[in-house]
Nucleic acid binder design. Sequence first.
DNA 1: CAAGAACGATACTGACCGGTAACACCCGTG
DNA 2: CACGGGTGTTACCGGTCAGTATCGTTCTTG
Lengths: 205, 205
Amino acid sequence: MPVTATTASPAEAAFNHSDKVPPRTRILCSARELFYRHGIRSVGVEAIAEAAGTNKMTLYRHFASKDELIAECLRLFAEEANGVWVTLAAKHPGDEAAQLRGWLAAAAVRITDPEDRGCALANAAIEIPDRNHPARRVIETFKSAQHDRLLALARAAGANEPQVLADNLIMLLEGARVCAQSTGPDGPAGRFVRTGEALIAAQLC
Amino acid sequence: MPVTATTASPAEAAFNHSDKVPPRTRILCSARELFYRHGIRSVGVEAIAEAAGTNKMTLYRHFASKDELIAECLRLFAEEANGVWVTLAAKHPGDEAAQLRGWLAAAAVRITDPEDRGCALANAAIEIPDRNHPARRVIETFKSAQHDRLLALARAAGANEPQVLADNLIMLLEGARVCAQSTGPDGPAGRFVRTGEALIAAQLC
DNA sequence: CAAGAACGATACTGACCGGTAACACCCGTG
DNA sequence: CACGGGTGTTACCGGTCAGTATCGTTCTTG
């Protein structure tokens, strides 16, 4: 089902630029949403512009190409995902083990959500096989940063083998999210939290 | 990079219909390869037909639409993947634990392969968000069958909690494959075998 | 040999795509 | 008021897409 430009209701558009939000922001916001929900390749620039309450011309005044817009959207996704760490640190100050479990719980919420379509970055990596696409840099940077943060947290929490724990948690998360996409949240993904808790518990003596 | 119809070298085409292979088979073979390598949405029917040494008209005499061709290709992928179980059973007759480990090793080979692009079925689920697409039925059927086979094997191998082991191994595999797509085989995916072995060992007393 | 089915080649349709040109407009600053 | 940058609008370009029509060929089968 192609996403035609006319599917954007006036209400949707109004939601984005209710105040004096600059067009660039509106475009990024709409593009992020559409790319995530329908897949990057399914969404045309015209549909993005219309959803943002503007038009293609203005879009191309702010982004050199659709590929650059894609990369910028993924950068936004990565930024938002990185914000989770500071939120967790604020909620469980000094208690790194609790932060680990909080990370697990937050991930579980996303996985359980029927609207969830998996990790936007990982999906993009599958949708864009070209290794030279500007989006690939963003994806790799984000994934390695995510791994580093998790590794540091595992280390601070006193894990016996932080590297092992971090790798396993990453694989578990990624696997649960892709499982949820093909077999729903009641398949193997339903065991995500329990397995994650077990992995953490086994490493914290 | 769009896949133009002219990229199929004569040698490639010749490879497919060297003998008297019927066009339907050639088309399916070429489509499978192209879909997997470049992504389903990136490949046009014209390119498929040309790679198969035929043309669009013949393609549409055998498949009602591109969507049906996609579903049929995924059916082929599923069939091939299901063949692994009988191969494993033949290699380790009666030794279900060895079959489990063999399954792990076989998966590791695919993950390590730099040409690997992950599970074709899982990728399709991400590339095709539409729940009514004919491919979705194939994907869900395959994934649940895969889970059932693994569960039966875990049970036969004498796992303490076969359900747990099957779920975890599925998530681990899926996670490792998607990790390999974004961070390569040296990221978290590099720990796939060791973690899998640990999961199995912990369940077999 | 005749008939018919399958196949190949070419051209076409209508729609959509990413991207651009040209021009009118609004609005804040001087 | 004049001006100039950011924006909206429309039309357009070349290209690609899925899918179809037409016709000639080839190959099988009776």
